[in-house]
């Protein structure tokens, strides 16, 4: 069981981070975005990679983490989006998710694109990944 001070630490950690959820299945996106907001994160939603790129390029929006599905309609799937982010916004962390088993193998060759979370995922596992990534980022010189 977490102590009160641990809970407060977690909430203050969450409130300082902004997550962009990229998912074309609207109901799946609403559920995870809501969950992350309930955990204290500021969350923006994008329905595809084009919207994600627009948000990342917006001058008044600072995004810390992109949580994106791999399978998306359009020219840019989640892998391509992750590569674009790495090239243009190297400070933004990426977590990919996929329901296709083969994607995990591809993701392993794209380790710079970040760890892959298999669908269906438990919402708490997304929070755990976010916390791991931000903790790792905080310890980097």
């Amino acid at each position: 069981m977490s102590t009160i001070s641990e809970t407060l630490d977690f909430q203050s950690d969450a409130s300082t981070h902004t997550i962009l959820v990229v998912e074309h299945e609207v109901l799946a996106r609403l559920v995870i975005a809501d969950y992350l907001r309930d955990c204290g994160y500021k969350v923006f939603e994008a329905a595809n990679s084009d919207e994600a790129v627009t948000m990342l390029q917006a001058p008044d929006v600072a995004i810390d983490i992109v949580f994106s599905d791999v399978q998306m309609p359009g020219d840019m799937d989640g892998f391509r989006l992750a590569r674009w982010i790495r090239a243009h916004h190297p400070g933004v962390r990426v977590i990919l998710t996929s329901g296709v088993e083969r994607s995990a193998d591809i993701a392993a060759t794209l380790c710079e694109a970040g760890p892959l979370l298999e669908k269906p995922y438990a919402p708490q596992s997304v929070v755990d990944r976010i916390r791991q990534l931000m903790a790792k980022a905080a310890t980097k010189p």
């Binding site: 609207v26 609403l30 907001r37 923006f44 939603e45 994008a46 329905a47 919207e51 627009t54 948000m55």
Partner: peptide
Amino acid sequence: DVITRCHVCDELRARGLKVLEANS
């Protein structure tokens, strides 16, 4: 328009409203 949508939704949530968003 994702920028408009996110901005509007953000402001509505800041006022304590429950907000769902769709782009089509």
